[in-house]
Simulated assay, not measured.
Amino acid sequence: MEVEQVGASWTLVVGKRRIGFRHDGSGVVRMQNPQPGLQSGSTGGGWIPVETSWIAGPALCWNSVCAQGDIPLD
């Protein structure tokens, strides 16, 4: 996880994929998930609103993308 601005802008790095997240404080989190097969560093795909949830583990999920470990939220 790369945090640009705590609670507002972060990226999950999974292998060569970079999945971007943005939160503007309104309660809506948006995710930009690169399309499989794009070259490394290419963003592709648009920003979509995602549902945030906690699951057992514990893990924090945004739609079907989940992260475990130390997650700086604020």
Rank of each mutant, 00 (worst) to 15 (best):
residue 1 M to N: 11
residue 1 M to Y: 13
residue 2 E to F: 14
residue 2 E to N: 15
residue 2 E to H: 14
residue 4 E to T: 15
residue 5 Q to K: 15
residue 5 Q to I: 15
residue 5 Q to P: 05
residue 5 Q to Y: 13
residue 5 Q to F: 12
residue 6 V to I: 06
residue 6 V to E: 11
residue 8 A to R: 15
residue 8 A to E: 12
residue 8 A to V: 03
residue 8 A to S: 10
residue 9 S to I: 01
residue 10 W to F: 13
residue 10 W to E: 02
residue 10 W to K: 03
residue 11 T to I: 12
residue 11 T to P: 01
residue 13 V to H: 15
residue 14 V to I: 11
residue 14 V to E: 15
residue 14 V to S: 09
residue 15 G to V: 06
residue 15 G to N: 12
residue 15 G to L: 08
residue 15 G to M: 09
residue 16 K to H: 09
residue 17 R to H: 10
residue 17 R to E: 15
residue 18 R to P: 05
residue 18 R to C: 08
residue 19 I to A: 14
residue 19 I to D: 14
residue 19 I to K: 13
residue 21 F to V: 11
residue 22 R to L: 14
residue 22 R to D: 10
residue 23 H to A: 15
residue 23 H to Q: 09
residue 24 D to K: 04
residue 24 D to H: 02
residue 24 D to I: 01
residue 26 S to H: 00
residue 26 S to K: 00
residue 26 S to I: 00
residue 27 G to V: 04
residue 27 G to F: 07
residue 27 G to T: 05
residue 27 G to L: 04
residue 28 V to H: 02
residue 28 V to N: 03
residue 28 V to I: 11
residue 28 V to C: 00
residue 29 V to T: 15
residue 29 V to N: 01
residue 30 R to D: 09
residue 30 R to W: 05
residue 30 R to V: 13
residue 31 M to P: 05
residue 31 M to G: 03
residue 31 M to R: 15
residue 32 Q to H: 08
residue 32 Q to I: 02
residue 33 N to V: 14
residue 33 N to P: 04
residue 33 N to L: 13
residue 33 N to M: 13
residue 34 P to G: 11
residue 35 Q to D: 10
residue 35 Q to L: 14
residue 36 P to E: 14
residue 36 P to A: 14
residue 37 G to W: 09
residue 37 G to Q: 08
residue 37 G to I: 08
residue 37 G to M: 08
residue 38 L to M: 11
residue 39 Q to R: 12
residue 39 Q to Y: 02
residue 40 S to N: 04
residue 41 G to S: 11
residue 42 S to K: 05
residue 43 T to A: 13
residue 43 T to K: 13
residue 43 T to P: 03
residue 46 G to S: 10
residue 46 G to D: 12
residue 46 G to T: 07
residue 47 W to F: 08
residue 47 W to G: 04
residue 48 I to L: 09
residue 49 P to I: 02
residue 49 P to T: 10
residue 49 P to Q: 09
residue 49 P to C: 04
residue 50 V to W: 12
residue 50 V to L: 12
residue 50 V to I: 11
residue 50 V to Q: 12
residue 51 E to P: 00
residue 52 T to P: 01
residue 52 T to G: 06
residue 53 S to D: 02
residue 53 S to K: 11
residue 55 I to G: 00
residue 55 I to P: 00
residue 55 I to S: 04
residue 56 A to R: 12
residue 58 P to Y: 05
residue 58 P to D: 10
residue 58 P to F: 05
residue 58 P to W: 09
residue 58 P to K: 07
residue 58 P to A: 06
residue 59 A to E: 11
residue 59 A to R: 13
residue 60 L to D: 04
residue 60 L to K: 10
residue 60 L to H: 06
residue 61 C to P: 01
residue 61 C to F: 03
residue 61 C to A: 00
residue 61 C to V: 02
residue 61 C to Q: 03
residue 62 W to C: 06
residue 62 W to E: 03
residue 63 N to S: 07
residue 63 N to L: 01
residue 63 N to Q: 02
residue 64 S to A: 09
residue 66 C to H: 01
residue 67 A to K: 03
residue 67 A to V: 14
residue 67 A to C: 00
residue 68 Q to V: 13
residue 69 G to Y: 07
residue 70 D to F: 10
residue 70 D to Y: 08
residue 70 D to K: 07
residue 71 I to G: 00
residue 71 I to Y: 06
residue 71 I to K: 03
residue 71 I to S: 01
residue 73 L to D: 05
residue 73 L to G: 08
residue 73 L to N: 05
residue 74 D to V: 06
residue 74 D to P: 08
